[in-house]
Design a protein around this nucleic acid. Sequence first.
DNA 1: ACGACCGGGGTCTGCCATCGCG
DNA 2: CGCGATGGCAGACCCCGGTCGT
Length: 386
Amino acid sequence: MEKMASVSGIRTLIRIHHSLILQKSFRHSLLQLASTCITSRHCSGSNDPSLPSDTENKSLLENLSVLGVDIKMARQRQPGVLRKSFTNEICLAQFLQEKGASRKVIASIVSRYPRAITRSLDHLEERWQLWRNVFNTDAEIVSILDRSPESFFRSSDNDDLKKNIAFLISLGLNSKDLRRLLTTAPRTFSNTLELNKQMVEFLEDICLELGGKNPEQFATSIISKNVYLLIKSTKRVGTNINNLKTSLTLSDAELLALLQGKGVDILVLSNDCLKKNIHSLEKKMSVLGLKESDVKNLVLNYPNILYIGADTLNSKLDCLLKGGITIKQILEKPKVLDYSIQNITERLKELQRVGYDFEKNGINILDSSKKRFVAKIEKLSGVSEE
DNA sequence: ACGACCGGGGTCTGCCATCGCG
DNA sequence: CGCGATGGCAGACCCCGGTCGT
């Protein structure tokens, strides 16, 4: 608190004493900042305004280099920022440092999203506070900025962010949902309110078209089930829904049930990818001698199968079939396809070692946690060895 | 005590294209 | 024209354990 007060005090001071002398003392304290890990109290505005606008700002470059910023990367990403006369890099660095970001993290953030240094302290503080309404600690926010600086800095519109959060809450998303949304898909919060609204309305319309009775609840529920929805385009989601419907000849009711259940996950796949996966699944099933209705039932029971890339799915199926499991068993318990090829391979080997009879015991053993699986194997090998 | 059933949890950015504005 | 803001895209699963019926 006191720190913040003193910072803005110094900003005022700087505005009053905007002189050449300050340039020098600022440079000095910036170097000090680097060596003593930020004790400086200066907010910038200290770069030479008389520079021609088509060349890079030398004093800015020096500041950035002292902060450990990868200038080459910054230049490649947002060259215009390096030509600006007035920037806020010291202010930003200090701000982030106070929030617990390390020097390395700060440098990485600015390197990857240079425009961050154009935000004012007031703006930063307000935006941070808005994010803090969703998170419990500064550390969580720092870790997201480190992961995805763009999500925090790309938009300069705090009012829109405020309205956006209010909008998400108004949908009935609880604080846990919001946290998951912001943690996993931080870009949701730098979307414009308008864009998020569009997606929500789009989902509600889909629900109504399919004969659903509660569009609001539908939208909220599938958004909370798949936090990536809001960072995808309505075009992508819509095309996927249409492709599912036509290629599997689903009725409205079937499609609605699919979307409300496990089917949400596949909506965010790229259009080509989903198309490819559907096609490849159909082909593989036909090679294995199955009917179209089998494919449809398989997808309805286990939509995630379409999330698995064509090559992976084919080798996974082959791996199971080679391991002595029938396609009929797989159709009955498709969840075994959830597990990695490596996992499946290892388990098949273990099961073969203890002489596990899939025909007698089924294949559910493959769909269990590692702990349970190991316990089971131990029991089985204990029995067979004694 | 056991296993089938079922739902939930982690995870996801960095780049490019376009538009409007000064 | 150059820049800031913003939309959109590619990539392409895996694993765990509570609970309930037997």
